[in-house]
């Protein structure tokens, strides 16, 4: 399994994708980095803390105030250009489902389009192909962007995840996106109730077995909150627990709010799996 993003090629060591929201209303940070200066500071900070990728988003996932294409572009594209200038080597991802936004951010220097709404706009893959960008192929169960799951049922949620995400990836290949730039994402909580997200978590290895690099986005989500009956601000431990489980099963990209904590968990799991050497071991070896 190889993943190429921007000019960098990655193997088995898990990658940390830090969330940077240019939104006034996202569930976790509640607008903390809506302002340009705050968002730039957040990027500098997460890079220093060990993020491999930043994922810049201009529209909150949950239903809420309408953000039109023009507004989304204004929130993301100039910011991508600024981040690209400050961090030439950093892999920049943009969380969008709209091809018009994809085009603008790719022109501004984005390396990856995080299509968290599962190919709702098929032209997004064409934009990725045109610019040589990567694409995240997420599973939503076919729902419209910015909707909540309601009375969702699957014969087998993992089978559905695999079928739909792999189909999206193959469609992207057909559109001209290089295979090594594609990632699949089961999209926890998207088109899934907590039971579904937990089932996906314990069977992430089946996604890994497809050979496509797997991204998981677990951070502070409702399936963690419902599992532990905890509000948004108290889900870090639960998030880290499922992060470790997915890392152990071979998921490659971890989209996260809490960078130093997630980095430490990913590194520890990677060392345990033997895909990263211990930082420094001399005990018993002198």
């Amino acid at each position: 399994m190889r993943l190429t993003l921007g000019s960098r090629t990655f193997g088995e060591t898990p990658l940390l994708m830090a969330i940077v929201n240019r939104t006034p209303d996202s569930f976790y940070d509640r607008g903390a980095t809506f302002a340009r200066e705050e968002a730039l500071r957040r990027v500098d900070q997460v890079v220093a803390e060990g993020a491999d990728i930043v994922d810049i988003g201009g529209v909150k996932a949950a239903p809420g105030g309408d953000v039109d294409v023009r507004e989304e572009i204004e929130r993301t594209a100039p910011f991508v250009a600024e981040v690209r200038e400050r961090h030439p080597e950093l892999v920049i991802s943009v969380d969008t489902w709209r091809h018009e936004v994809g085009r603008e951010v790719c022109q501004a220097g984005a390396d990856l389009l995080n299509d968290a709404w599962g190919g709702a706009d098929p032209k997004l893959a064409e934009v990725a192909a045109e610019f040589g960008a990567g694409l995240v192929c997420a599973h939503t169960g076919g729902v419209e962007p910015r909707t909540r799951p309601h009375r969702v049922e699957y014969d087998d949620v993992v089978a559905d995840v695999i079928e739909r995400t792999v189909a999206l990836a193959e469609r992207a290949v057909a559109a001209g996106v290089p295979r090594e730039r594609l990632i699949i994402d089961p999209a926890h909580d998207f088109g899934k109730n907590t039971w579904h997200s937990l089932e996906v978590t314990r069977r992430v290895d089946e996604l890994v077995a497809t050979g496509w690099p797997v991204l998981v986005s677990l951070s502070n989500k409702d399936f963690v909150g419902e599992s532990l009956d905890l509000p948004v601000g108290e889900r870090l431990m639960g998030t880290l627990a499922v992060t470790a489980l997915c890392a152990w099963q071979g998921a490659l990209v971890f989209r996260a709010h809490n960078v130093p904590e997630t980095r430490q968990v990913l590194d520890m799991v990677a060392v345990t799996r033997g895909v990263r050497p211990p930082a420094r071991t001399v005990r018993g070896l002198a």
Partner: peptide, 17 residues
């Protein structure tokens, strides 16, 4: 001839080694 003198056995680099 300590084991930690074998290349890679300390994991990351160790200054003393």
């Amino acid at each position: 001839g300590a084991p930690l003198l074998l290349p890679g056995v300390t994991g990351g680099p160790v200054r003393e080694v």
